[in-house]
Design a protein around this nucleic acid. Structure first.
Lengths: 205, 205
DNA sequence: TAGTCACCTATACTTTGGTATAGGTGTGCC
DNA sequence: GGCACACCTATACCAAAGTATAGGTGACTA
């Protein structure tokens, strides 16, 4: 009997998914409210076959949590679950070595199929996920940014001044202005406020 | 046997909650993926005792969807469900006449209790919801804004310049600056970008 | 009536944001 | 070697953002 550990901070979501999976398929289901608890629980039970991590969850910090879990338990199958993440995140998760990406827009029946698929050793990725151009007009917009530009954008999302950003990144204020100017052009927006709003809307930071 | 209609755009969440409620309590459970579908389904089945609406859902448009549903079916009990809404939204929902507010941070068992509570004619509101000062430092921050300041903030959330805002509100640019300055002080933030981010985070606009 | 408050405008000023141009370094690639 | 590119810095300039002070209107209220 395969054991599955579901980690999600929304108790209601987690509990009901767990209850559903238990009833329908007779899986061994375990749950955790955050990444720390999940990893802790893994160390106790060494028979977890599949770990499902919610993308927006205390301790995850983007895909860092996925990587951490992989390093801690290299043999475990790990899937990412999210209701808001875009295609970019999903792609990155898969190239980080995730065994599956589970959007919450999935049907309950499809979830079971996906889980069985993953447990059989395959890697699950919903092929039609995030292809609608209306919801994600520019999935790859942010990938065109250089490292420094991404770091600068991250600071913009806190709403701080160029001077403070310069301090944080340990560079001159003029350089920050350069990065800002370039990233504005790449994102196709007019000012820092729009850049921050766009990044937040796309859940980049 | 009470009938419950659950409307949520996340198939996985909706299905599993539905499945859980069906198994545990033997309720009559119906589901819908958005507000339109929910209202349509209500018109067919006149025996729905409780309608659970997800706050972030196509057709909801904030609390408008709640009001629409109430007007369409004045006798039905209607509860709002959300994983992200803050205390303000919850309070407004209740004062709009909602029969309950269900945060997704609820336990599955608590959900059942809440539903039974509502079905018995009471109004359910999680008493400890959103009281943590860390998550919602100033729930009522935005209510202290004057009409014009709110309108200005709304424009800030598009990321446009003072000049454009002046055009849109048909006032002078200096006046816009005044409104911006005052609302920044009231919100306790340093600049327009932080104001926009805060408003977006709180789902004000 | 006087007081308060939202709202609008004006002048003047400092700071910050954003653009333009020019140049320097290091890395990797053909 | 030459080339592209990310990255950093410098000077300079203009536009936009934000602050400060002062004053005027209308509505509502004690």
């Amino acid at each position: 009997m395969p054991n599955i550990l579901i980690a999600d901070d929304h108790d209601l979501v987690r509990d009901t998914i767990a209850a559903y999976l238990e009833t329908v398929d007779g899986f061994g289901i375990f749950t955790a409210p955050n990444l720390e608890a999940a990893l802790k629980q893994m160390s106790g039970l060494d028979s977890i076959d599949l770990l499902i991590l919610d993308y927006n969850m205390p301790g995850m910090n983007g895909l860092d949590g996925l990587v951490r879990a992989q390093k801690a338990y290299p043999t475990a199958k790990i899937a990412l679950m999210s209701g808001v993440a875009n295609r970019d995140v999903a792609n990155k998760a898969m190239s980080c070595g995730a065994h599956g990406f589970i959007p919450k827009s999935l049907t309950a029946a499809s979830l079971v199929n996906a889980i069985k698929f993953i447990l059989s050793g395959e890697r699950y990725f919903p092929f039609d996920f995030g292809t609608s151009p209306s919801t994600t007009p520019n999935d790859s917009t942010f990938t065109s940014l250089s490292n420094r530009e991404m770091q600068t954008l991250e600071q913009l999302c806190i709403g701080i001044s160029n001077k403070e950003i310069a301090r944080n990144l340990d560079i001159q204020e003029v350089t920050v202005k350069l990065h800002v100017k370039n990233l504005l052009a790449k994102l196709g927006v007019a000012n820092r406020t729009q850049a921050a709003l766009l990044a937040k809307e796309r859940h980049v930071f």
